[in-house]
Design a protein around this nucleic acid. Structure first.
Lengths: 187, 187
DNA sequence: AAGTAGATAGATCGATCGGTCTACGTATAT
DNA sequence: ATATACGTAGACCGATCGATCTATCTACTT
């Protein structure tokens, strides 16, 4: 293996599919994915087994990145659980303001994939429970009386922020949610 | 016209599409819609001009029904704005608990229809501003200091409830949102 | 009874879908 | 030098997509 290999077809496909599946939806055609990634048709099926396998891998790696983003956001906010949790909503404000933002990637996949047995659903379930745990841990540190319940409320506020950011841009959904989050933290 | 005409192809198509588009997504095939409605292919194009026209009509009529449901829910709750607004979240609890519920119809359509110029987007925008007005009117009656802002917060809670109800069933999202709604109403 | 409008049934269109296949090219390892 | 593995290019498959078309049937109008 050379010192600096240009990214292989697997990485190119993952990257292109990450963008294209978000912007065009999971129903984007295989041809479009291959063309965007500049990858041979065969490589898709060798590396991912098919389009569904690619979708699952894309969502999985996105989930890892997004969970890490939550952790980084909280770590940047310092040690106080209250600040760490509220920083999440400031971060959401940045995310929904980004050009091209149009909603939660996982919710979009869940809504678009009709088959309830599609493996992508498990990926997004796992991602949500990951985030739930992240929130709950901070709430426990905050000595919140009902950390489980409060974590569900914060998750609901996050979902609402992403939905509002997609459907009613310019309404500053994140800071509206942050106010409510402060109430959640107050117990 | 006979005294009791069996509903015509237009109504049958609207009804079937209402169900099928929600359960299968807007990408459901024309053949499936025709078969479910027991309607000739030609009737679709005569009455709606095409699949997109049918989608728009389905969403429009659903929006009228759903807006009426909000109004009925509030009217059943009496005259006090506070009770009328909180009743919305009790109603959401019923809706997300219904078998077959899997999220907000309009958000699903918005996420699935990639083309930003698709006329369906305007339908869901209109629907949301309708609901926003309904909420704001009650907040004004409640003498809320920031009715516009509070209406956005309530809409965010509604969106969050529908998303959480779809992705994390059994977490009682509606009552979790209702608690936060009480805080919103408190100003 | 004849005419007309609206509906059904279904063939057919070109395009695209996801997936499989063969043929060829290239780089590395032995 | 040769074998092997990995990649590209692209033809090809059956199925399905949304849409248009002809032909036929039915019901109401006059």
């Amino acid at each position: 293996m050379s010192v600096r290999t240009q990214s292989g077809p697997r990485e190119r496909l993952l990257r292109a599919a990450h963008e294209l599946i978000y912007s065009q939806g999971v129903n984007v055609g295989v041809d479009a994915l291959l063309k965007a990634a500049n990858v041979a048709r065969r490589s898709l099926y060798e590396h991912f087994g098919g389009k569904d396998g690619l979708i699952v891998e894309v969502l999985s790696s996105a989930a890892a990145d997004d969970a890490a983003d939550y952790r980084n956001t909280m770590d940047r906010a310092g040690d106080h659980p209250r600040e760490r949790l509220l920083a999440v909503f400031d971060r959401l404000g940045e995310i929904i303001a980004r050009p091209g933002f149009h909603g939660c990637r996982y919710l979009a996949a869940d809504l678009a994939l009709t088959d309830p047995d599609h493996p992508a659903h498990q990926v997004s379930r796992d991602y949500r429970s990951q985030v739930h745990e992240l929130l709950k841990r901070e709430l426990v540190a905050l000595r919140h009386p009902r950390p489980e319940h409060a974590a569900h409320q914060l998750l609901l506020l996050i979902d609402g922020t992403l939905a509002a950011g997609a459907t009613r841009p310019g309404t500053d959904a994140a800071s509206a949610a942050r106010e409510l989050a402060e109430h959640v933290l107050a117990g």
